[in-house]
């Protein structure tokens, strides 16, 4: 028997609907919403995606643990791309503008978002940062998310692809421990491969774990420090740039 209203187990049920009780108190009314908790973020992300498309901009959302080498990878990407592709960066960190300073020093415009207590960037922040940056048409917008393999998985920013960066110093089982992030990403960049002789890290096993979570995930092996594999990364970016902006 239902402990809320006392109705029996043999009562009629509506297919696909939880057992519904009318509000108990007079003056109360029930409003059916049936909407995602992320509806507001998703709507803003869809707006960002349209804005990127209108300007022919490829937006990538870079996610990883702290210390995976995202900022170094970005610096090296800027050095290799800046002469032929306009590149702009949105940096997300809880505190400091250290990363945005590094990006500007490498030669790309950057906006720093400090999330304070927040553990991820959201579509609202990106909309404002994009307006402030006003990157040129046809360019590439790199969004460096807060270092965190959990929360950024849930928040669509309007990007074309999530790229998860995993360094070989972190342990090969990260894809199994943080499956949501690896499921959400289209590409896994294995960074710091120059350190492989010095660490216990089975690359094939790591890729196997990532594909167990996401069979379609692409994998690139790079070292942002030594430059190994960076040509493949640059090629991956260039191959995904959209055509000329839509009128």
């Amino acid at each position: 028997m239902c402990t809320t209203c006392g109705c029996g187990g043999s009562g009629a049920t509506l297919e696909g609907q939880a057992h519904v009780h009318p509000p108990a108190r007079p003056g109360r009314r029930r409003i059916s919403l049936e909407q995602s908790l992320l509806a507001k973020n998703d709507a803003l992300a869809a707006g960002n995606r349209r804005a990127f498309a209108q300007r022919g901009i490829l937006a990538l959302n870079l996610v990883s643990s702290p210390g995976s080498g995202k900022t170094t990878l970005l610096e090296q990407t800027i050095l290799r791309l800046r002469d032929r592709v306009p590149l702009a960066v949105i940096e997300g960190d809880q505190q400091t503008s250290a990363d945005a300073d590094r990006i500007r020093a490498a030669g790309a415009p950057a906006v720093q978002i400090n999330t304070g207590k927040g553990c991820h960037l959201d579509a609202h922040m990106i909309g404002h940062a994009f307006a402030a940056l006003a990157p040129p048409e046809g360019g590439v917008l790199m969004i460096e998310n807060v270092g965190n393999l959990v929360c950024p998985a849930a928040f669509d920013l309007g990007e074309a692809h999530k790229v998860v960066i995993l360094s070989v110093t972190e342990g090969e089982d990260k894809p199994l421990k943080y499956p949501d992030m690896f499921a959400a990403a289209d590409l896994m960049v294995l960074n710091k491969v120059d350190l492989l002789p010095h660490v216990r890290f089975d690359v094939e096993r790591c890729i196997g774990y990532a594909r167990r979570v996401n069979p379609d995930i692409e994998v690139l092996r790079v070292s942002a420090q030594s430059g190994e594999g960076l040509d493949g990364w640059i090629h991956w970016i260039e191959a995904r740039r959209p055509g000329p902006p839509k009128p």
């Binding site: 519904v20 509000p23 109360r28 029930r30 409003i31 919403l33 995602s36 908790l37």
Partner: peptide
């Protein structure tokens, strides 16, 4: 895989 508000009781 979703997280939804089904309904709310309001006054």
């Amino acid at each position: 895989a979703s997280l939804r508000i089904l309904d709310i009781d309001v006054e």
